[in-house]
Design a binder for these strands. Structure first.
Length: 270
DNA sequence: CTGGTCACCTGGAAGC
DNA sequence: TGCTTCCAGGTGACCA
């Protein structure tokens, strides 16, 4: 599933094609996503203009007048811009139809969601307790250091905790920790301020690099126009267990943290 | 409050 | 070939 870079690449691909345009129809073929697609979604959206498309954490927010369509892509979701006559495939659950084209949600695993929230969108319960945006300047070494005090969890799990900092998922947590030289299972509470500063810098740099590469394309992710991302070609550790570290040559190790595969180099990370 | 585990769902790859 | 098992980018719910 998409982490912040993939969601942001999706947003950038979609926004110029839908902002300022009217939704003329909504087709829901399968409402059983993570939460049911609201029965009245078509009634809410049809005839409305999409003012803009924003991103908050891994959520896409389609502001439409006095309400917002909230979309989360889960593990396997994607949004694509298509011609109006393209027939839907097996997991194409929802279409937003515009004049001359449509925006189609595909999500094989159905962990994604499509919800409606009256303004302000941030009032939605799913958005209320989100942490800071990683690319925002308020996400600093001091900020992370404060969040780690008294926390005995592995630093990787804290990085992936959306109540602390948003948008960082399994791939980018692994990559950022490698680049910062920090072991993923290090206890958060034991990180010095200097190491928090370094980690924050590497989280920002990793996400920026992934954005510049168009995100990561593993199984399901493609940009809104169908083009793939290339960041997976530059992974230092993710999914590379047993292969030589690109920096020191030692074999990449794997362990499980919070039921997620975790990759690291014992030569480069302490 | 914190931290740990489970569940949701489908498809692809690996193992026998 | 076919069946079984494991794994996958997320995250809310539930437990001690």
């Amino acid at each position: 599933m998409p982490e912040l870079p993939e969601v942001e690449i999706t947003r950038r691909g979609i926004e110029p094609h839908v902002a300022g345009r009217a939704i003329v129809d909504v087709v829901v073929r399968e409402p059983r996503l993570r939460w049911p697609v609201p029965k009245d979604l078509k009634g809410r959206l049809a005839g409305r203009i999409v003012d803009r498309v924003r991103r908050r954490a891994k959520y896409l927010l389609f502001d439409c007048g006095d309400g917002t369509l909230i979309v989360h892509l889960g593990m396997s979701g994607s949004l694509r811009l298509l011609a109006a006559d393209v027939p839907p495939g097996a997991h194409d659950h929802v279409d937003l139809v515009f004049k001359g084209g449509l925006l189609r949600l595909r999500d094989p695993r159905r962990f994604g969601s499509m919800l409606w929230q009256q303004s302000p969108a941030e009032g939605h319960v799913l958005l209320r307790s989100l942490g800071v945006e990683p690319l925002d300047e308020v996400f600093s070494g001091v900020c992370l250091h404060r969040a780690t005090r008294g926390r005995r969890v592995a630093i990787k799990l804290l990085l992936m905790n959306q109540a602390v900092v948003v948008g960082v998922g399994n791939i980018y947590a692994n990559e950022s920790l490698f680049r910062a030289g920090i072991l993923p299972h290090a206890r958060a509470s034991r990180l010095s301020l200097a190491r928090c500063e370094r980690l924050v810098a590497e989280v920002k740099a990793t996400l920026a690099d992934a954005l510049a590469a168009g995100g990561s394309t593993l199984r399901d992710f493609h940009a809104a126009d169908g083009s793939p991302g290339y960041f997976q070609q530059s992974y230092f550790v993710y999914d590379r267990q047993g292969q030589p570290c690109r920096r020191c040559g030692a074999p990449i190790k794997m362990l499980r943290l919070g039921q997620r595969s975790t990759f690291y180099c014992t030569g480069c990370q302490r």
